[in-house]
């Protein structure tokens, strides 16, 4: 204690870089890189949320992108109706309403799908979460009112007090602060008594039940928190891209989130952020040269899983007891 670990340094440097570099890019006239950083930070929030259940709860959810989509549609649908009429109940540009919808609906979806999925374990859990994710995907694909497959353009971004999301730097600032809060929130939960039970259930469910813990209930609670957090990232993503489509919920997107968490290092605070950073940068770099830009990802993941314990963050792990 007291002394800052290597991981602590990496986290601090990474977070400072994310705070300083993007505004710097904007000032030097390279707005494109601010865009890149915004997408990175928003996806990092989603990855952090997934890490709460995957890294600390041992729940390998393969349907997390559904929450991003739900959060994004919670912006798109009210905005759509505010522009084109209909559905007066929610038709609005009010960002706080969008936010409440994004978090509320994601939490509800997590509660319902989690209550069912968490009755299973291991591979079955992976498959069933993926199935629920695909259900959400196909549902929005079939909704012609919202252009189905073609997706929805958001003409007016969420209106929030104090913040103007049309300003790229303000949007980035909101996303960055949200990421920091999501990380701190995750750390708080993980270290709390609830978090100890969650981690104990990941390590040895039988023992935790014997001690008197209803581990199902603890897992479900974590799943709902994670889903709500991921829905929030969808709210940001919708406002960032101003175009949303069912594709955001496709299982391959969920796979990418898992990839980020595992590549960066599950069950660390900064791992998912590092993972999403590498993901975005490599994608950007390689998509210039080849359409097969997924290939280096595959090789990288195999390399990391085979040779480094605990993802990229594992490289910085000292001899900690």
């Amino acid at each position: 204690m007291g002394k800052i670990t290597k991981i602590g340094w990496v986290t601090a440097i990474g977070m400072v870089a994310l705070a300083v570099l993007p505004p710097f890019f904007l000032m030097t006239g390279q707005a494109f890189y601010l865009d890149l950083a915004t997408r990175l930070v928003i996806l990092a929030i989603a990855a952090v949320s997934l890490n709460l259940i995957l890294g600390f709860g041992g729940m390998v959810s393969f349907g997390h992108a559904a929450f991003i989509g739900l959060g994004a549609y919670a912006v798109g649908i009210p905005a759509h109706h505010a522009t084109w009429g209909g559905f007066d109940l929610i038709a609005s540009y009010n960002g706080l309403l969008h936010l409440a919808l994004a978090i509320g609906i994601s939490a509800l979806f997590a509660l319902i799908t989690g209550a069912i999925s968490l009755r299973t374990k291991g591979v079955y859990f992976i498959m069933i979460t993926m199935a629920f994710g695909q259900m959400a995907f196909f549902l929005f694909q079939s909704l012609d009112v919202y252009n189905g497959d073609d997706g929805l353009t958001i003409d007016v971004r969420s209106e929030l007090p104090w913040i103007n999301l049309d300003e790229p730097l303000q949007l980035y600032g909101l996303a960055y602060v949200s990421l920091v809060v999501a990380m701190l929130l995750t750390r708080m939960i993980v270290n709390s008594r609830f978090g100890m039970v969650l981690q104990g259930a990941k390590g040895n469910d039988e023992r935790m039940v014997t001690l008197g813990f209803n581990t199902y209930f603890y897992r479900l609670t974590a799943y709902v928190i994670s889903g709500a957090m991921c829905g929030y990232s969808g709210f940001l993503l919708g406002n960032f891209t101003t175009f949303i489509s069912p594709d955001m919920m496709h299982w391959t997107r969920s796979g990418e989130l898992m990839f980020m968490v595992i590549l960066g290092g599950a069950s660390t605070m900064f791992g998912p952020v590092l993972g999403s950073s590498v993901f975005i940068l490599v994608e950007e770099l390689f998509s210039h040269f080849t359409v097969f830009w997924h290939l280096p990802f595959g090789l990288m993941l195999i390399g990391v899983v085979l040779f480094i314990r605990g993802g990229l963050m594992g490289l910085f792990k000292g001899k900690r007891g």
Binding site: I189, S192, R193, F194, G195, M196, V197, G200, M208
Partner: peptide, 23 residues
């Protein structure tokens, strides 16, 4: 210690707490 603390925590009945670090 964490292992044993979980058993004590189960008896304590205060496991559904999210804020204060367990340590």
């Amino acid at each position: 210690l964490d292992n044993i603390a979980l058993a004590v925590q189960a008896q304590d009945g205060t496991s559904f707490r999210f804020v204060k670090p367990a340590h």
